[in-house]
Amino acid sequence: MAPRLLAAGDDPVRPGPSTPLTIDVDGEPVTGIRGQSLAGVILAGGTLALRRTSVHGGPRGVFCGIGVCYDCLVEVNGQRDVRSCQRRAADGDVVRTQYDPLPEAPEGDHA
């Protein structure tokens, strides 16, 4: 039960030959095809949650897929806040999921 790439042989658009690539996602290798977005590679690798939210710590994944919701932010090669749905994957990319807890509230402030 996961997102997956359509096998090229079954694909009526007849894609050209594909070049495989491998990225590192939190230490795990994930393979994809050149031209895919980082989000696409990670999704097709079976992972839906790309980050944890700051307030509730819940999982978040791709939502809009076209760069407007910023829900798919990841750290790429040390650079934070990259929309993984907009960034094409490059072989060897090192991706880290982001979790930025809120600053602790000052003492006496129990909002």
Binding site: M1, P3, L5, A8, P15, G40, L43
Partner: peptide
């Protein structure tokens, strides 16, 4: 743009 299906069902 990727020929990726977001789910099976």
């Amino acid at each position: 743009s990727e020929r990726l299906a977001v789910g099976e069902r």
